[in-house]
């Protein structure tokens, strides 16, 4: 094969693959601007003939999309902030502070990573019910305030902090918490950014647990509300595409803006250590 032909082949395949990958998302966007019924014709229209915002208006004014958008934002932001604080403290301690039983404790946590969350779901529901947290924001936030994967991610990164730096601060008389805030956190900034994007996206996209614990329509997140909308409005393709745009666009934009951090976190988390 000549180099020119090989190059055409590689790039042609890449273009084809990318087209197939992006097509569903681009078409979702296009159909969301079509008037009701326009997408249920043959041949399937690629572009809206008379673009309209009617579907979005319908969703936001009549269906209560604002509420669900706010719920999703609030829950994802709260979970991200809380778990970032708790996981960072714990991950740093597991990496740099010595205490009896540290390694055994950490190994236990890592071992527990293999347990799928569903095993805990039924008892967790009963526990939250006892605490009065079922059907409240707390039902989603409280169990997610810390996570083993987050602790692991921070620990991996924190191990690269030189001990001399911490010792020097201790000799200067700084307390452990002072050292954490003014020396450690600034050094951990890259992994904190990764963890923040990861957590936010995971929480935003989560479906099964919010479906179980938030049954009140006013408390539902976008994915849960979208799922029940799509069961009611089986024929309203245009409106459902608009709903999908509202659900997907925020995370897609966030990912594009913070892509570097997301990919770094993904790679850090997937390297065995």
């Amino acid at each position: 094969m000549t180099p020119r032909l090989a190059s055409a082949l590689v790039n042609g395949l890449l273009i084809g693959l990318t087209a197939v990958t992006l097509f569903p998302l681009l078409w979702m966007l296009s159909v969301s601007f079509m008037p009701a019924g326009a997408a249920s014709t043959l041949p399937p229209p690629l572009f809206p003939e008379t673009p309209t915002l009617a579907n979005y208006r319908e969703l936001f004014v009549r269906a209560g999309m604002v509420r669900w958008l706010m719920n999703s934002l609030l829950l994802a932001a709260a979970v991200t902030l809380c778990s970032l604080a708790f996981n960072t403290m714990a991950g740093y301690a597991f990496a740099k502070l010595k205490f009896a039983g540290r390694e055994r404790l950490f190994r236990t946590l890592i071992g527990a990573l293999v347990i799928p969350g569903q095993v805990a779901m039924m008892p967790l529901f009963l526990l939250l019910k006892q605490m009065g947290l079922v059907n409240t924001y707390g039902g989603v936030i409280v169990p997610a305030m810390a996570g083993i994967f987050g602790i692991y991610l921070v620990r991996q990164y924190a191990r690269t902090i030189p001990d001399e730096l911490l010792e020097a601060a201790r000799v200067d008389g700084a307390g452990e918490f002072r050292i954490f805030l003014s020396v450690v956190v600034p050094l951990l900034r890259p992994v904190l950014a990764s963890l923040a994007v990861f957590t936010f996206l995971a929480c935003w996209n989560d479906f099964m647990w919010p479906l179980i614990v938030l049954t009140d329509e006013d408390l539902q997140t976008l994915p849960v509300a979208l799922a029940s909308l799509s069961r009611e409005h089986v024929q309203d393709n245009e409106m459902m595409m608009a709903g999908s745009v509202v659900t997907v666009l925020p995370v897609l934009v966030l990912f594009l803006a913070l892509q570097k951090h997301y990919i770094q976190g993904l790679l850090l988390g997937s390297v065995k250590g």
Binding site: L226, A227, L252
Partner: peptide
């Protein structure tokens, strides 16, 4: 990074 539920809705239409 897209939301599975939204994507499943798109898929149902495709």
């Amino acid at each position: 990074v897209t939301t599975l539920v939204a994507v499943a809705v798109i898929w149902r239409y495709l």
